[in-house]
Simulated scan of single mutants.
Amino acid sequence: MTLHDIFIAIGGSLDFLPNWLISLILFALAVALGVLVHRIAFAIVTRIVARMDLFWRSLVSRTHGPTRFAVIIVALGFAASVSPLTSGQAEFLKLVLLIAFIALLGWIAKTALHIWTTVYLRRFKLDADDNLLARKHVTQTRILRRVAELIILLLTIAAVLMSFDGVRQYGVSLLASAGAAGIVAGLALQPVLKNVFAGIQLAVTQPIRIDDALLVEGEWGNVEEITSTYVVLRLWDWRRLILPLSYFIEKPFQNWTREESALIGTVMIYLDYRAPVATIREKVAEIARATPLWDGRVLAVQVTDFRQNTMELRILASARTSPRVFDLRCEVREKLVDFLQREHPESLPVIRAEADTAREPAATRALASAG
């Protein structure tokens, strides 16, 4: 005896009940049986892939919801074929199953897109020192995935609406008025559409990427997230700066990691004219060689300006990432000041009038005060 015969037998044994109640019972039995079969099959498949690669385990876990929904749709369709439904009830159930099938296709497409992007991004590591290529692909993939998800949602809704005869019947009139409606909708949704198109432009041109170090509105931080409408900037003190996507198309900002992660750090120090520049240059080289923060590419000590009481000394040193550059600058400042205080205190800035007065003999100062 087949499953079809079993359902017919169950329906025949319930002849004393109203047809609608018999149909509900058959539908409930079909759904329960479908969920049970899916649970058993999914448990078997999960056990099979338990020792396989992460991709297969993720694939099975991600498809749990869509496969269960698909089994329920098939079970309801099977139950509908043996239920004592009227023509009107059968047409209504057919429409419901069609809408459910369209929603299932959209769900499957969204799940497949997520699995593909996850597998694709597994090749790139954001935690690497030189992660320019990884940031490029991660940013592009995430933005385009959100755009694709929006397109899938719109196509699914459009397919659902087109399953109703009323929508198909008035399609021509809707297209005829699409010009005026499009203008009104465009004006109403201008901020949203502006950010959507800005997101597509950012994905293609990539002025910013995930984990880029930016200086925006006087704040420094890293790009933490790029959504379809806004960008989240994680500031150095863990605050979050939220900016619309259109900001990065219309306004200037600094990107410290646009082409590569390496940066040159600057340390400005103001010293007395008696400071031994050559000795300081040797000490800076010693500090740089002793620290793992320096990448060995750029190191320079130059007198860049003269002030009324001091001279300006600029120290340049490079590192592989912006956080390492910041730490390197701090280390150079601390160790250089400590060296000058111990070895060359005369190099630190002083007020000339006070210094000259301190060197005058006591007798001269006494005569000057007496006069």
Rank of each mutant, 00 (worst) to 15 (best):
G179T: 06
V184P: 03
K136L: 07
V160W: 02
A134I: 11
L155Q: 03
I183V: 04
V172N: 11
A158G: 15
L150R: 03
M162T: 10
V138G: 06
V172F: 09
I151Y: 10
A158H: 01
A158D: 08
V167I: 15
A148T: 11
R142P: 03
G171D: 02
L150W: 09
K136Q: 11
V147A: 06
K136H: 12
G179H: 10
L153M: 12
A148I: 13
A159E: 02
L161H: 09
Q169F: 02
L155H: 04
A176D: 10
S177Y: 10
I151S: 13
T141G: 00
A134H: 11
D165L: 04
A134W: 09
V147T: 10
Y170M: 12
L154M: 14
L154R: 10
A176V: 10
Y170I: 13
S163I: 03
R135K: 09
A176M: 10
A181C: 14
S173D: 08
A178F: 13
R142V: 12
L155V: 07
V167D: 05
V138M: 09
R168G: 07
G182C: 00
A178E: 02
L174T: 14
I152T: 04
S173G: 09
S173E: 13
T141L: 01
L174V: 13
A159F: 01
G179Q: 07
G171W: 04
D165A: 11
I152K: 05
A159R: 01
T156W: 02
A178R: 06
T139A: 05
A178I: 09
I152H: 12
I157T: 08
A180V: 15
G182E: 03
A159L: 01
L161Q: 12
V172S: 09
Y170W: 13
A181R: 06
G171A: 09
L154F: 15
T139I: 08
R146W: 07
L175F: 14
L153C: 08
G179Y: 03
V138H: 15
L155S: 06
L144I: 01
A148N: 08
I183M: 05
V167C: 04
V172E: 05
L175R: 13
Q140C: 01
T139D: 04
A159S: 03
A181D: 10
I151K: 07
L154T: 15
D165E: 07
G171N: 05
V184K: 00
E149K: 14
